[in-house]
């Protein structure tokens, strides 16, 4: 089975970009640089000011990927899925909420923060903004395979017919609050998404082939991470 990559976008410490935008995906450790919302969105998300860093970089990368695929215009609901791999997810917001909950017998516990203490909320914000009604959830991936599981699960959804188009990618944000990190943490932070389609599409940037249970690039190499597909 052939999977079409019809768009891709990213936000990393080296900047933001799209596959079709003339810049190359660069990976450098550090805090991702998120451009102002007016540069990313035709209509910025209603709750943008409440977004944590995780949500800002994730939603921006999704928006750029959709723009690259020509799918970012305001439209009716579309059965498009969004699957992201993440390790830390919204851990930073968890810690921020806990800080408010510990103040004065919880009277300052913030409902606005608690609403963002699940890693899939960023996908929901994107779903609301771009009217995406397919499956939305997060998966885990080892550091060396960022986004690979999201692509595999996204392909599962395409193969099963659950949705005709899936955004698959990776999000991990920087955190000053998190004092303990995973042993193999290389400091890379950012978000990278690609738009995958199973059907005949007028636009195709590149192709992935599903051979048995393996995803193979046009070069004949196996997909090891999202960077192989978006880079």
């Amino acid at each position: 089975m052939r999977i079409h990559v019809i768009g891709g976008g990213w936000v990393t410490a080296a900047g933001c970009g799209r596959i079709g935008g003339g810049t190359r995906l660069q990976l450098t450790p550090g805090t991702p640089a998120v451009p102002p919302p007016a540069e990313i969105y035709a209509h910025p998300p209603q709750r943008y000011r409440r977004f944590d860093g995780y949500c800002r970089i994730g939603c921006a990368a999704i928006a750029l990927a959709l723009r690259d695929a020509g799918m970012d215009g305001a439209q009716a609901a579309r059965p498009v899925g969004v699957i992201a791999s993440t390790r830390y997810g919204c851990f930073d917001t968890d810690l921020a909420f806990q800080a408010t909950a510990l103040q004065d017998n919880s009277i300052y516990a913030s409902p606005g923060l608690f609403a963002y203490t699940l890693p899939g909320i960023v996908l929901a914000e994107a779903a609301i903004l771009f009217r995406l009604t397919g499956p939305t959830f997060t998966v885990g991936d080892p550091a060396a395979q960022r986004g690979r599981r999201a692509i595999q699960v996204g392909v599962d959804l395409l193969v099963s017919g659950a949705c005709p188009v899936v955004l698959a990618g990776w999000i991990d944000a920087d955190s000053r609050r998190l004092r303990r990190r995973a042993e193999d943490d290389d400091g890379l932070r950012g978000a990278v998404f690609v738009v995958l389609s199973a059907g005949d599409t007028p636009k195709m940037i590149r192709e992935i082939t599903l051979q048995g249970t393996e995803l193979i690039l046009e070069s004949g190499e196996r997909v090891r991470s999202i960077f192989d597909v978006a880079g």
């Binding site: 609901a77 929901a124 779903a127 609301i128 009604t133 397919g134 659950a162």
Partner: peptide, 10 residues
Amino acid sequence: GIANDANHIT
């Protein structure tokens, strides 16, 4: 089957 409401985060 899995689907999103695309309505509100909570």
